[in-house]
Amino acid sequence: MHPIRKKRLTIVLFLLAGLSIAVALTTYALRQNINLFYDPSQISAGEAPVDVRIRAGGMVEQGSVVRDTESLKVEFRVTDFSHSVPVEYVGILPDLFAEGQGIVAMGRLNNQGRFVADQVLAKHDENYMPPEVADALEKASKSNGSATAGGAKPATY
């Protein structure tokens, strides 16, 4: 390669390397702000601020959903399989909301450690499959005595 071009190429590579380091350090420093939500372990550990609008995310615990018969109030627990946080919400839930499904809730943590949500969004994973396959997988996991009913897929949220 021509020496001038070689020199230009080195400059370009240095520019790219410098930029990447700058951006990597910035995003690393801001990682807590870039994270969309706190997970239940962080909330239990007291990392989430109380009475500040935050998002909490995780899996809706099996058998934890309690619907109020009089109103739209719903109570459930959100878990990451090591800790769980009680959530209450008044309003219409997205279609995908179900036990064993990932959600992200927006709201405030009160001082009793309950999360009072004013918005609940459903999260889905990248495993798409036809209903028959999902049924078959669910049957197989039930006959194996697995506790996660409806857990046709690995627990990602």
């Binding site: 990682r31 870039i34 969309l36 997970d39 999260k123």
Partner: peptide, 9 residues
């Protein structure tokens, strides 16, 4: 790298 609402690839 971060918690997102968007699912992985």
């Amino acid at each position: 790298w971060w918690n997102t609402l968007h699912q992985p690839a």
